[in-house]
Amino acid sequence: MSQYTVAFAGNPNTGKSTLFNLLTGMRQHTGNWAGKTVISAEGEFTHKDHQYLAVDLPGTYSLYSNSADEEAARDYIIFEQPDVTLVVLDATSLERNLNLALQVLEITGRTVICINLIDEARRLGIDINLKKISKRLGVPVVAISARNKIGIEALLDQVELVATSVVTAPPLRITYNDEIERGIAELTPMVEQTIGSMYPARWIALRLLDGDDSLLTSLKANMNSKGKALPGTKEVLGHGVTACH
């Protein structure tokens, strides 16, 4: 009965949609989510005993550049909190692709890293040590070829482990330079106090340091709507606001 949500994130042109279509059997329909106008595809697939709702996020290079696509992908991962975020990477340009993976991992540890186009990489003479990457990132890393259907079962096994919380990991902690770390240290407790434990405080502190206004806007909108969803909270919310005026 229970259905897990799997969000597909990745750079443009990594074969993310190929994988998506493969898993969902091309039964693509487009749907809007989180009040965004950016269209993303949704589909369903089953693996072993579980049903999954796959959400194809827009392909982006980063989550930080404030284009509509990136904000949409970012907001989905933070606010919709999918059970698994599947980050699809291009094996032939991992160096750049990993940036996105790291950005996602800073938000959530409920992540599976999927290195696509592995056959292409082998053909080009690129050897990738998955174990090492997995160790550094703290989450499962699977190499696949979506177009030649290599490694799909193994990937879904890992997705299942993360979805069912058999494998868990905290958000990845990247250590920045002293100045940034001091800022984060100062902001994190305040963030926790303000927005509670719903969202990763360290990450939000980092984004605030980066001056990410759009995240703040989304955060407000989301807390507003979440507040409305919970009648009890709404009341208190009203108090909070009036108290400040």
Binding site: T194, T233, H239
Partner: peptide, 13 residues
């Protein structure tokens, strides 16, 4: 559920 602190959210943010 969440602590009442959440409520201050809007302006504190």
């Amino acid at each position: 559920m969440e602590s009442p602190h959440v409520t201050k959210g809007m302006d504190t943010l």
